[in-house]
Design a protein around this nucleic acid. Structure first.
Lengths: 259, 259
DNA sequence: TCCTGTGTTCCGCTATGCGGGACACCAATG
DNA sequence: CATTGGTGTCCCGCATAGCGGAACACAGGA
């Protein structure tokens, strides 16, 4: 279209302009106008104008009536908050996870929801850790894991219904839940009691228990779990409910405080 | 290029895609992949791929090695923080400004830096308010206002030098500062004492005094000032230094706390 | 009054960015 | 072990989206 051109540069010029415009608001200037932005970034006024108004249409910028200038919207601040918690999750989890390891020799996971799968983003191995346990970055089915139940239970009602509707409830063991109505009832229970259990539904003889991690606004952003081999799969790891919930609360607290 | 087409839609499709991708990360999902994003937004995989990588190149997204998915960067969280303070400024200023009005009958302003100008974004009229005082949204020269001095004094050294270098120090009254070296010395004084004064440098017989408003990280984002007619222009409004500084501190405190 | 700044709109050309399709890879399934 | 279905990445050719330049209205200052 215009400048640079370049060979392998797989970069969209207008998107790059948009990103630079957004970043310009981060460097001390709360409000900026079209010309000012164009000058600072090195765009033509017309281009800057178009990009800015597209960002306004998409709700990332807004025009301040009094000044006639533009400003980042509250949508941007909520996006920033999401970024903040995503990054803090790792550091906030470290200490509480290590504390939890003193209580149990099970394997510890922190997981988030990735579509209809559970995605593990943190892990502490227990002594008897076998390769059954998923590595960081791996996925698992949401309906046969305690973390999956916790994360799904936290979805807004209609979204939960839609998600469950489109899930394939393929059983991993004879104990796996395969009926949608039974699964929805299970999610309601999980939501009510504040933690989720998996009693031999993923692997025979294995159980796990998970609790929700919440961001400062109270939204569930991840789940902590303990998984271990248990003598009686019908009892599961119920005795770890309190420690797991407390660990989740500790991690949640770490997401909110001043750095 | 593709869909919609539409008549007068002055909107850049790729920028819109980028914005939608960013917003997708705000809705609960900390990490997302290319295909997932493409599916949710309704883009082709290749397009999503290109947009995502442009955003990565511009530092708004990053690839998480372990999961192979993408995440908002800390740049996004700092942008969000900027947006947050910009929006909180108004509400945080209300009460402290009203408190300050009990101490003085001068006109109160909150201002930010707009290039080399001072931009007023908040105002409380005093009883004897004349049209000398600028309305919200209007601009004034930075070198003849107390707010301008405070805001310029807070710039990082090299940026301050560069800005002052390119300013036109046109005098508004005989008392206006016109020498660059004198102005730089004045800024150093302002920085040291924590407030800035204007003694008849903008309008004869008028004085003002301003103090810096800081965000939770301590960066100066705005300034609050009192302006009034004074009997002796050489004395100015020095007796209001403490109340103005305290008002600024109160507003600053409001920017940091939990909502 | 002129001037210089702003934001906005129009227009025509071309390089840009689009979709479709093909590829390598991996994990889970049979 | 082959198959399947998922992923991310790459390529290519077409047409259209998006670029810069210019001209506009408006506002404030000199």
């Amino acid at each position: 279209m215009s400048t640079t051109a370049a060979r392998g540069a797989e970069t969209l010029t207008s998107v790059a302009s948009a990103a630079r415009i957004l970043r310009e608001f981060g460097k001390g200037n709360a409000q900026l106008g079209v010309s000012q932005l164009a000058r600072r970034i090195g765009l033509s006024k017309s281009t800057a104008h178009r990009v800015v108004w597209t960002l306004v249409a998409e709700g990332l910028l807004e025009k301040v009536p009094e000044t006639g200038l533009f400003r980042l919207t509250t949508t941007m601040s909520s996006l920033g908050a999401s970024a903040e918690t995503a990054h803090r999750l790792h550091e906030s989890a470290t200490i509480p996870l290590d504390q939890l390891r003193a209580v149990t020799d099970g394997t510890l996971h922190v997981a988030i929801l990735d579509g209809v799968d559970v995605l593990y983003i943190e892990r502490r191995e227990g002594p008897g850790a076998i390769s059954v346990f998923r590595a960081v970055g791996s996925r698992n089915l949401a309906h046969v894991t305690s973390t999956g139940k916790v994360l799904l239970a936290a979805l807004p009602p209609e979204q939960q219904r839609r998600t469950v509707e489109h899930m394939r409830l393929t059983p991993k063991t004879p104990r796996s839940i395969t009926s949608r109505s039974a699964f929805l009832a299970e999610l309601a229970t999980v939501r009510r009691q504040g933690y989720g259990e998996n009693r031999g539904e993923s692997e025979p003889g294995m159980a796990s228990i998970a609790a929700p991690i919440r961001d400062p606004l109270g939204r569930v952003v991840a789940a902590v779990s303990v998984a271990a081999r248990v003598p009686d799969v019908t009892v599961g790891l119920r005795h770890l409910a309190r420690p797991v919930v407390e660990t989740a609360l500790r991690i949640s607290a770490g997401l909110g405080g001043q750095r």
